[in-house]
Nucleic acid binder design. Structure first.
Lengths: 323, 323
DNA sequence: TTGTACGCGTTATCAT
DNA sequence: ATGATAACGCGTACAA
């Protein structure tokens, strides 16, 4: 593999001049530049990242940290990652997907998702020198991107209210993440604005986030239903609900309206196709990476922290209808 | 950030000895080793990958090449990538996902998918010095992993034959990839073995690989059907077929049996859940990466090429029944 | 505009 | 078992 010295020799200049055409071409005379570019072409010269990284004290690598290892096969995470990856790879930044902070591995920046408050302080992110972007609004002092979960279920509930429904349930699942509380809050907000008092029996949360579990809960609850619509905390839950309804010969949407949340594939494959609060997951991934890349490129300590709340889009399909 | 020199000074030895405890600890006296390990701990020393890479002539990066850019959001590719990523990241190898070979970027190895015959020769993979693993059985001279598509649809067809079906259609889509021909071949093989002559009208391929397109074709064909079962070239096609059947009041599976292919989520979300030839996509990704890592670690030119044909698993669910 | 000299952190070689 | 020295390829500071 040829080096700048080989190129320099062939072009009859010093290595320094070659380095210049690589980094600031305008500072080199057109004649020399031409000869050098030709030599680069002929020799098939490729800049040695390691050598460059050594002097620049960079790595060309960012870590993508996700605490839940099993999530590697979750469509949501995969889509998120695809978005990040698109931006990072475009910028020739390699990725390392890890499940702890791996502090022994140097990198140029990190994207961290599913972070608990305790963890961050332990590793004093922010006090750290490398840029970090969080997925989730955990820390005011750190850049983050998050989805507006509250607004998402608010819009879904609003949609049902506008269709004439007044008795609307909220199906949710057990998890320690804040997003699930936010989704319930959005539902409650919309109900409150319409002056409807939420009955305790309308809040159903004895399930996990998979369709089988949701179906089971729904089968029980739907027998003695006193509501005409359900806001679900996820598409998967909504899928379970529609399956249960089918089994009980309750028609969706003519007898029961159902909304989902997420929009990562499940929504369009289910029958009927779900009205859902779609998250632009791929885009969220893109933004996380874009912000990080920006921070890496402008290595300043200008601390105007970026906080972006990305909106969901209410996609109206076949699972909701007029009361 | 402290270097080996700092550690050496603190431990009262030379930098070389520190380097030794890092790479071949047995060649250092226990006493010195103890002092050095302590110094490393106290100073929080971390090896500088760039410096190491510079002398070792490695990069710590592999390229994952996929020619179809839009596939970034395809669940199949995402799952495949997740499998590769799991292995690579475990081995502290960063990933760069690109859509051409980007020959100006050095790396330690490549995983290439969706390669056409022409491309490879242009870039003379194999003659190249870095290890390359292919997804797809394109080149005998290069390591590859592929899925046994032929066997997959063979098994699906066999399953339908055992259920008593004799008039079985094959729904396929238009694409230039060899896998689709292999899937048809498997179907034909099973039919031939049963002594059944495939009627031309049973082969339906005027669609693309999405459910809407498949539904449209199925709506047309199913009106004048002369078969009782369909082997579909993908789950997405099978989904479209079941949707069309529903619209035509044809019950699946009692009146029509349908099998899918892939098993990347669609199969379990559709209604009814699909009997399908499930590919272990995540595992395929793992194997691709495992082979590459192995090649990178043992930099020998021992040319016992690895070719692995990974088997599909016939998952029997609710879309197939006795004739 | 161009070149010289040096440093980045690590490892290999060859001594001791 | 340990150390001195050179080399990896590139960028920066400074000089010309």
């Amino acid at each position: 593999m040829s080096t700048i010295y080989d190129v320099a020799e062939m072009a009859g200049v010093s290595a320094m001049t070659v380095s210049r055409v690589l980094n600031s071409p305008d500072k080199v005379s057109p004649a020399a530049r031409k000869r050098i570019e030709n030599a680069i072409e002929v020799l098939g010269y490729k800049t040695n990242q390691a050598a460059r990284a050594l002097v620049a004290k960079t790595t060309g690598i960012v870590k993508i940290v996700h605490s839940e290892k099993q999530a590697a096969q979750d469509p949501y995470f995969m889509t998120l990652f695809a978005g990040m990856s698109a931006v990072l790879s475009e910028n020739t930044i390699a990725q390392l997907i890890i499940h702890d902070f791996a502090p022994h591995l140097k990198c140029d920046g990190m994207i961290v998702m599913g972070l608990k408050k305790g963890q961050a302080l332990d590793l004093n992110i922010g006090a750290n020198s490398i840029p970090v972007v969080l997925f989730g609004k955990e820390f005011d002092s750190v850049d983050w991107v998050d989805v507006d979960n509250t607004m998402g279920s608010y819009l879904a509930t609003k949609h049902l209210l506008e269709l004439g429904h007044t008795e609307i349930a909220f199906f949710s699942f057990q998890i320690e993440e804040p997003y699930i509380q936010e989704r319930e809050a959005g539902y409650r907000k919309a109900m409150a604005e319409s002056g409807i008092e939420v009955q305790p029996s309308w809040i159903v949360s004895d399930m996990t986030n998979d369709s089988a579990s949701a179906k089971k809960s729904a089968l029980r609850v739907l027998r003695t239903t006193n509501f005409s619509a359900i806001v679900c905390a996820s598409d998967v839950v909504a899928l379970g609900v529609t399956q249960a309804a089918k089994e009980l010969n309750i028609d969706v949407p003519s007898e029961l309206s159902v909304t989902g949340f997420d929009g990562v594939g499940v929504d369009v494959m289910s029958d009927p196709r779900l009205t859902t609060a779609r998250q632009p997951v791929f885009e969220v991934g893109r933004r996380l990476a874009e912000i990080l890349v920006q921070r890496i490129k402008s290595r300043q300590a200008n601390y105007d922290v970026i906080h972006e709340l990305i909106q969901t889009e209410l996609v109206v399909r076949d699972s909701t209808a007029k009361k």
